[in-house]
Design a protein around this nucleic acid. Structure first.
Lengths: 116, 116
DNA sequence: TGACTATACAACTATATAGTAATATAGTTG
DNA sequence: CAACTATATTACTATATAGTTGTATAGTCA
């Protein structure tokens, strides 16, 4: 990464952006066990068909998942398992930081401080 | 990651979001060689002081960089070098995909489709 | 003290996109 | 063919945030 030009940095940033969404992480997580179609993912992710479909096409555009149409359904699967390595590394960093719970709380203050 | 609840997924997504910005990646990249102050980073990143400062405080909030005030300057450094491992993995995935240039182009068509 | 430098912050505009609702497309089955 | 199912797409609203500008704070030096 040290020798990436601006264009390269944009590529990388876009890749991270694809992962910067809890719903997409959830979908990727479900695909860990193998391919699933949109209907299954919709149930597992607890979202709507349109929403899941949109996230899936984004993930597909970014090359994170593969599409395969079979009969009446479209099956999605992980394109490159190294995405999980990346997530594990992030989880490692995060669990380190969970020790400093106070710092983390700051990040989510806007999302949960509603109960005043 | 497989056993993360919704809150955990949000943490992870937020972490990725912190990395999903070319300017912040550039700053992290510059910090690879060691700590730097805001003025230096501003020059290296080719942006304004306010802009760099804002990105730095975000990175600091997310625990990606450390702050240290010394004299007149504030020096930033990488909090956890494993962020570079993450980036390397992403770069690996991306360079794999660069072979399929056509697919990538689609992602950036809006940004660059002027130069055929 | 006042002038200067480095950093942070607040207010703003513009853009991106998450999620929703409705519609369209494509395959299946009778 | 019509009716049905699965998925995709379009148009929309609401929200988040990138980047800018101007200002505030804090340290340094004369």
């Amino acid at each position: 990464m040290s020798k990436l030009d601006d264009r390269g940095l944009e590529y990388v940033a876009k890749y991270f952006k694809a992962l910067a969404e809890p719903m997409r992480l959830k979908v990727l997580n479900e695909l860990r066990e193998g391919e699933k179609n949109v209907g299954q993912l919709k149930e597992l992710a607890g979202s709507t068909q349109a929403n899941v479909s949109k996230h899936l096409s984004l993930l597909s555009d970014y090359g994170l998942v593969k599409r395969e149409s079979r009969g009446n359904c479209v099956y999605y699967s992980i394109a490159d398992p190294s995405v999980y390595e990346i997530c594990e590394l992030v989880c490692g960093q995060i669990s380190n930081r969970l020790i400093l719970e106070a710092d983390i709380k700051k990040l989510f203050s806007s999302a949960q401080q509603s109960s005043t």
